[in-house]
Structures are given as C-alpha cells and as structure tokens.
Design a protein around this nucleic acid. Sequence first.
DNA 1: CCCTGCGTTTGATCCACGTCAACCCGACGG
DNA 2: CCGTCGGGTTGACGTGGATCAAACGCAGGG
Lengths: 247, 247
Amino acid sequence: MSKDAATARLAFEIVKTACSNCNLRELCLPIGLAPEELKKLDELVSARRRLKRGDYLYRAGQVFESIYAVRSGFFKTDVLIEDGRDQVTGFQMTGELLGLDGISSEIHTCNAIALEDSEVCAIPFSHLEGLSRQIHTLQHHFHKVMSREIVRDHGVMMLLGTMRAEERLAAFLLNLSQRFKARGYSPAEFNLRMSRDEIGSYLGLKLETVSRTFSHFQEEGLLAVHQRKIRILHTEGLKKLMTHQRT
Amino acid sequence: MSKDAATARLAFEIVKTACSNCNLRELCLPIGLAPEELKKLDELVSARRRLKRGDYLYRAGQVFESIYAVRSGFFKTDVLIEDGRDQVTGFQMTGELLGLDGISSEIHTCNAIALEDSEVCAIPFSHLEGLSRQIHTLQHHFHKVMSREIVRDHGVMMLLGTMRAEERLAAFLLNLSQRFKARGYSPAEFNLRMSRDEIGSYLGLKLETVSRTFSHFQEEGLLAVHQRKIRILHTEGLKKLMTHQRT
DNA sequence: CCCTGCGTTTGATCCACGTCAACCCGACGG
DNA sequence: CCGTCGGGTTGACGTGGATCAAACGCAGGG
C-alpha cells in the first residue's frame, strides 16, 4: 500500500503493456492472431487506464472514441432514463470489452463503473477499424465479439421476460461461475463484486427478493452464502432449477 | 393476384435487384456510400428470397452464412429454451437486418419467421467482411448497425426489467409508430402484424394482459383499437405514461 | 472500546399481473 | 345461410414479488 510499492507495480506493468505478452491474449481481442499480427495490435492499444472502485470509465452522453478491454478488475454498465429509473445492463470481467454500445451514435449510451480497483486497455476505435481492414482474423474476431454481445443480451431478455426469481438468480450464478472458471478461478467459490441491489437491478428484481432467494438457496443446500462470498454446493441443483419449471 | 400478375411483378423486381436503385438504400446497409461503392455492394447481394407468412427465414441451430436485409414485409425473431419456453427477441421491418446473432458461433441462435409475405436480400457474410475491408464507409456503417442492435437490446432489457405493463405497451407502440414514420407511413395509424401473444412474449407479459392494457388505453382515449388496427389518438399521453410513473 | 452508517436480512402486507375459464367475433368453408 | 375455428376480450380469483418497516452485523472512525 506504500507509495513506493504502487510505483513499483506501475513500472512493472508498463513493461508488459503489449498485447503480445499479455496473459489475457487468449481471452481478449487478440484471439487467434499470428505473432506478427499481434505486434501490430500492440501499437493499437494506446493507453492503459487505472480505476479505483467506484470510478466511472465513461458516462452516458460522453463522446465515444475508444472501446476498452478489461485487464483486471470488475465493471458494471448501467443505463438510466429521465424519471430516475436505472438498470444494470451487464457485468464485465477480465478480458471482456466495454463500450461497444457507443459505436452506433458516437456517444456512449450507458455508464461503465468499476466495482473494484481495475485496469483497462483503451483501444481507439478508428484504429481498430483501420487495423481490422488489414487483418482478417482481427476483423472477424471483432465481429464475433459484437455478435456475442447481442446473443448475450438475448439471453438476458429471455431471463427477464420468462423466468421467475429463483431461476434468474440461478442463471446468474451459473453464468458467473462459468466465467470465473474460464479465467482459471474456482467455479464453485467466489466473491461477488456487486451489491444485492445491483444484482437485483440486473435481474429485474428488488434487492429484498435477491436476498430472500439467496437465503432460500441456502436452506435448500444449494449454496453457502456469507455476505458476498458464495460457495456453490450443488451445481446440478441450480441447473435443474433453471430449466425444470414449466407453465 | 393472377399468376400473370405475380410473374410480371417478379420480373419487375428482378430488374431492380441492385442496391444502387433500391428505394431502401437510405435505410439499409448502403447508407452513405458513394455511387461507385454502391456498385460493388450490388455484386454482394447474392440473392433475393421470398417468404410467405409463417415461413422461416432461418432456424436456431442452422449454419450461419448470410445476414439478411428485409426488403419488404415483417419478421419476428425468437429464441427458445429446452423446457419449451420461448421469447420473441425482436420484430424487424423494411430495411432492417436479420441474422447478426449468428456471427458469433457461425450458427443461428434464434428463429426468424415472416409475419407477412416478405422479401429479403441475402448478404453472404464473408463477402460483406471482404468488401468492408475495402470500403471504410461500409465497414463503419456495419459496425454502427451492430452497435445499434446492442443499444436496442439494452432498451428492451430496461423495459423488461423496470417497466410496468402499461409502460411497456406504450413504449412498444411508440417505437413501432416511429419506425413506420421513418418509412413514410403514418405514425398514427397502422396494422399490427403480430398477435397479442407475440406482443406479450416480446414484452414479457401474457396475452390477456396485453389485451386488457389495449382496452384500458382505449378507455382512456389514448388509442382506437380494432383487432390489429391501431390508431394513436394521443401520442403525448402515451409518452407521459411511459416516463411519468416513478416508485 | 463504542458509535455510526450502510448493506443486508427478515417479516407482514399489498397489488400487478398471471391463471383459469367463459364468451365474443370476424373469417372461411360447406 | 350456418358451423367452425382461431384469435381476442373479459371476468373472477390466486400468487409471486414489491413495498414498507424493523432489526442485524460488519467496517470504519473517534
């Protein structure tokens, strides 16, 4: 926590700014690029940005210039409408991209907020377009990423439109679990970075309902919950819960 | 309706297959392209496809090869999960693109179904990627289209997550109204192409609730509803309804 | 150590929408 | 002309989750 330690860490990380030796390269934009292509991508990532918990990466209404790749940390995005209502539209973790919504109007349409101290790589969008005209693989991969975002959103629409509270929370936890697993963390035990209120907003539920549903899962022996620490005891049970209900 | 008339119309439309003289060029993919660029795009649109009401344009699970631009008609897309539940994820009208969800996994993730006799232009995706490496404007425009889809989905998530039935239906009607207007049709009077059930599925409501809400709007003097024919009598009233409620 | 504050849990009550069921109505076929 | 059929409307009733309210528990500060 000392100033020196922070400086030292900064220096260390600057050394490995490049995509080509970033340990996320299998998760992030560079997937499938040849070494020489990766070199080009290195030049593209113009800047890193560090954020503290609670900092805004960008705000709705700001001019869109770059997309961001999460290098470390955890984000949420949310939209709000005039009358004060808001909704969390997603949670982003390591290797995921932020800001794709801004491309359409050159203006960000949501807020992106760090839920813990985080670091992102800024990728100026016009550069990305330029480079993806040269590198097929990059172009195609970028298209896939955008498309995946659309598919993900459809999943959330499904969840919000047809599922009951238990199913929503089960789906949410299983999704988190799987994403942690993909990043080499335990799929069974993790810390939530977001509050009950934020989960509720994402799932279209009130925080009380989220809390009650957690308790309920715990009573059923599906989970161990302590504050934001979650241990999944019975993955299959959660999965069944998600699908089983019919009407 | 005679066979001859149909044939004649077919012949007529084949003549103007090209984007360069398509009257949708201001709405569809070619927006903003220079004449010589438009020529190149012409070669890209490999085939038209006609569909009758109820026909599937593609089904979830099929291999993805092309995206489609709606030339005429009206579509819905829906996703379904194992247990039989399904959800309409969108309604597409003239000039809008279908199939973007398939890019991510090379497999369509939803069904696209014609709600009336329709015609689409098939755009082989690999060709589109090729051409957009040559034409900046096309590339950028395509990115904007994908991004707009993401923003639209966020809007639906907002609707499903935070709005009550009346607000949802008001938002839905205003959205349709505006899209009809953009296409030169009356924003105040139009025919719904979809059933109450399909509206309900899209809005996360049951058809009875949709029906009741229509009746309610009619009692309030906001709408005149007769079957699928809608006349908006009081746009401002609908808008206020959409925003006004707080909690 | 205690005080304060915020996020969370838990309980009691309420209500918007779902469910179930009857009925209506325009389209279509015989 | 009537019978049928599918989508739409309307009513009565049930319920999942919202709302309101109180209490808890951990973290940070004095």
